[in-house]
């Protein structure tokens, strides 16, 4: 059963992404409200994929990606960045620090499911 960590400060987006992820058969969704909360969840639960927003309080998505990709235990977990920032440089910045994919908001649910399925190999 794949386990997906959704890191998003907006309850609306968290609920929408969780909704979409539950459509991937048998996926377990773990929710985190910011980067620090995400690191806590990572240390206590098995995670197969991370979906993270960039703009979040306490610790933003870019910092989280950087920490995850520099950690021996987590570096192989694929990270998909979801954000309102649509500029090319933001995308390049996210990918440069190790994010595996980038999805601009407003998200198209089918696109998100397809992308996540690719990384989960389902």
């Amino acid at each position: 059963m794949p386990s997906i960590l959704v890191v998003e400060d907006s309850p609306t987006m968290r609920q929408l992404i969780t909704f979409a992820m539950k459509r991937i058969s048998g996926a377990k969704v773990i929710e985190a409200t910011d980067g620090v909360d995400a690191l806590k969840k990572l240390s206590s639960e098995r995670v197969d994929l991370i979906l993270a927003d960039i703009n979040m309080p306490v610790m933003d998505g870019l910092k989280l990606v950087s920490l995850v990709k520099n950690n021996q235990s987590y570096k192989d977990i694929p990270v998909i960045i979801i954000t309102t920032e649509g500029a090319r440089e933001d995308k390049e910045k996210a990918l440069a620090i190790g994010a595996n994919a980038y999805l601009p908001k407003p998200i198209q649910t089918q696109e998100l499911i397809k992308l996540v399925s690719t990384f989960l190999g389902s």
Binding site: S10, P11, T12, M13, Q15, L16, F19, A20, T84, K105, P106, T109
Partner: peptide
Amino acid sequence: ANLYVASYQLHSTLDFDEVLRIIKEIVINL
């Protein structure tokens, strides 16, 4: 799903500022 989430969030609180924040979230994210 979008409509359900938007509607669910809008009626999840009776706090005026919270309602405004949710409206903003919907308009930005959805």
